[in-house]
């Protein structure tokens, strides 16, 4: 179940990495702190899950080995989270779509047959409720703010929507986990996610884009060009100084 833990953990890790790029550059100091807060929560989730995955290995690796020494095609994060930050609107839309998904996922994951995952989900769901409150609040403010803000977030929504498809399609790792009662079937998260998202988009006066059957799934290791560049940066110190302790 290492791969399943990585599927969830890598998503949190890569999203935390993206949010880390914002710190010191946000539209207001308060938002620097807010984004850092979310990044820290996500990084905490990632560390827990990667540590768990490492312990399931026979070779005694660590969370850092998994984070810093794996190649891009071995990462199992959602493609959505490796997309560039873009402007604040695009970052908020990305966050909102992921938060709505994590709410459904962690809610169900609390019933996992794997106690470590159930434990993680119980903690993470509280964090995610706060993240969702933050991101959905901003989707509404920007969607129903000025003409410019509306245009920007609608554009972002249109651009990112195709990456939501894979949230509800089980990868091979997920299929295995479902069979063992470790993970919920992603397809079962769709209805809840959809209605939650629709409610916010309506209040935000945003148009829900048409669904697209987009099949390049990060969960299967099929990544965009963005991931290798992101990892080149993230992994640089460990790659430059192999074997060193930090």
């Amino acid at each position: 179940m290492r791969s399943y833990a990585l599927t969830v953990g890598d998503t949190s890790l890569i999203l935390a990495q993206r949010l880390g790029e914002w710190i010191g550059h946000a539209p207001a100091l308060e938002e620097d702190l807010a984004l850092a807060n979310i990044a820290l929560d996500l990084l905490g989730q990632a560390r827990y899950l990667l540590t768990h995955a490492a312990q399931l290995q026979s070779d005694g690796g660590s969370e850092d080995d998994l984070a810093f020494l794996r190649d891009p095609q071995d990462f199992l994060n959602l493609s959505l989270v490796e997309q560039p930050n873009g402007d604040f609107g695009q970052t908020i839309v990305r966050q909102f779509l992921v938060d709505a998904w994590q709410l459904e996922l962690f809610e169900r994951l609390q019933q996992s047959s794997e106690p470590r995952l159930a434990e993680l989900a119980a903690k993470a769901i509280k964090e995610t409720r706060y993240h969702f409150r933050f991101s959905s609040g901003w989707v509404v403010r920007l969607g129903d703010g000025t003409e410019e803000s509306h245009r920007r977030v609608q554009t972002a929504l249109d651009a990112l929507w195709r990456f939501t498809h894979e949230m509800f399609v089980a990868s091979p790792a997920e299929q295995e986990a479902i069979a063992l009662g470790v993970a919920p079937d992603p397809a079962s998260l769709a209805a809840g996610w959809s209605s939650r998202v629709d409610e916010v988009l309506k209040e935000a006066t945003l148009q829900r884009p048409a669904d697209v059957a987009y099949s390049w799934h990060g969960k299967r290791g099929q990544h965009s060009e963005h991931l290798s560049r992101l990892l080149a940066e993230m992994q640089s110190m460990q790659r430059m100084y192999p074997g060193a302790q930090w």
Partner: peptide, 12 residues
């Protein structure tokens, strides 16, 4: 707005 104020106060 008020909602944001609570969140900012909480974060800071």
């Amino acid at each position: 707005d008020a909602t944001m104020a609570i969140e900012h106060a909480r974060d800071v």
